[in-house]
Design a protein around this nucleic acid. Structure first.
Lengths: 282, 282
DNA sequence: CGCTCGGTTGAGCGGGATCAAGCCTTGTGG
DNA sequence: CCACAAGGCTTGATCCCGCTCAACCGAGCG
């Protein structure tokens, strides 16, 4: 069940939001390319499509301007580039505009430990406030454009913009809640359920950004997924094969099309996980 | 390796902080009871022994007074009493002064899902900010005294006390970080490691509160522990037996004495989990 | 071209779940 | 005080999901 009107590749989104003078090309289901003029879309909190997901939610125009003025927007990061390393002093939080980021630590033997995947509209770096240093590294999984928000200025600003303070706390609270969910999943969900949940999370984010929840590209490798979900790579691979066999989805390398969202939801929440109250998990 | 000077039962701590006109009785290693006059210790942020763990950290006296004025302190909750239920509107966060709290959800079949154990100095309820309703229930695991902090007033206050805002953000950040750790543990730690980590967390909290990290009473049942760690009750039971056989600890019902902290640490962090940077895990 | 890396598939093993039985503690009511 | 019930805890036997090891495939790249 693919909604043709929303079938836009994430590349299109990236090009659209970077503000570069290129032409963004999105494909609609008919196969006819749709051309978007980049110059018309200046990047600013005021015009950002992530408005409802990100810090500006609920702010008035005047306050929005103030926030916008402290946000730094560099050129997009290429795949593999770092936002920060383990132990870096904590200066800024980063809002993801397009693309995706993984955060991870390494133990002494050098093997990675993925602690999170971060999608557009999410803030990265909040876990560093406590100690003043980043407890994990963050790097782009694909071409990723970010808004860097210097934390000291954000703190300052949010103390005289009540709406901003509230939204910052709300976003941190959201992260706590999501991580609680994740904990529960990892604790007692089967391999099937874990993968289904990750896919649903991605689908939900797509939906929130007004893209099709049914079709997307995985920006992360099978290895990363396994690492994140606490499963072996082989298990991930087998699961994708099984899901495909069962007609739940089609997958070809990175490209996923969800054919039966209901079944996927059913796998993820066999008896309706009540932790998701107040949130439609796609 | 028990430090005799710190061998105080948590009951003693409860009595000491509730501010009731009772006499707190702590046992020192010699067996001679030590009597503490309750009336001398008025409960206020200024004199609270959790100062460094809780919201007041870093505040000046004037600001501390302001904070103290919005804090409500009712009589301690008895074991099993609720702080709030699932779906309750979010009004306040609660700081735990003594005792402990578990948070959990129930699915339709009514079986519990423990999402966290909360120890003195921790804030409970932060996960409700996002939606304005509590996504989980919280109930006392033992006699527990709390400070209720109305959130709207806390928000208001922290916007004109920069130090308070910072500490609130710091505590939320800490919770995010701890939950990230937990996620990783649940994802790929063995049953042994998970239990060892929980015990170390309790020991660390004891230590931070200037009690002995080597000896404490578990306030939660084996069932709760298993539920929380994503393990069967039987596994928890077997692990305690094994740890005892191996001389790592002695356990008799709720009472735990850690005999070999190093070995416990070694079990928990086989190759030094770098996520714990900036924090001495006991 | 050959190398590496990411992904898939198969065979066998083991940690922890499940089922089952029994013990001990706690609480309740006579 | 004891009798009884209920729930928490322990221990044993068996089973199964997901890990590990191993081989192979295909894509991307120097």
């Amino acid at each position: 069940m693919i909604d043709p009107g929303q079938k836009i590749w994430s590349n299109g989104a990236i090009a659209r939001a970077t503000g570069q003078h290129t032409m963004g090309v999105g494909f609609v289901a008919s196969g006819k390319p749709r051309v978007v003029d980049m110059k018309a879309l200046k990047v600013a909190c005021q015009t950002c499509s992530l408005y409802e997901l990100c810090l500006p939610l609920g702010l008035e125009n005047k306050d929005l301007d103030e926030l916008d003025r402290i946000v730094k927007r560099q050129r997009p990061l290429q795949r593999g580039n770092y936002l920060f390393h383990v132990g870096d002093p904590f200066k800024s939080v980063y809002a993801i505009r397009t693309g995706s980021v993984k955060t991870y630590t390494c133990n002494d033997e050098g093997d990675e430990q993925v602690t999170g995947f971060h999608l557009p509209g999410e803030l990265v770096g909040l876990d560093a406030i406590t100690s003043g240093r980043h407890p994990c590294a963050a790097r782009a999984l694909e071409t990723t454009s970010l808004c860097e928000i210097p934390f000291s200025r954000l703190e300052e600003l949010s103390s005289h913009i009540p709406g901003l303070q509230r939204q910052l706390l709300r976003l941190m609270s959201r992260e706590i809640l999501e991580e609680q969910n994740m904990m529960v999943w990892l604790g007692k969900k089967t391999a099937e359920q874990r993968l289904a949940l990750l896919l649903l999370r991605i689908a939900r984010n797509q939906h929130e950004r007004h893209f099709s929840p049914y079709e997307f590209n995985l920006s992360m490798s099978r290895t990363d997924i396994g690492n994140y979900l606490g499963l072996a790579v082989e298990t991930i691979s087998r699961l994708f094969s099984r899901f495909q066999q069962d007609g739940i989805l089609t997958v070809e390398r990175k490209h996923v099309v969800i054919q039966d969202m209901d079944r996927l939801r059913q796998i993820a929440h066999p008896d309706d996980c009540p932790l998701d109250t107040g949130k439609v998990l796609c």
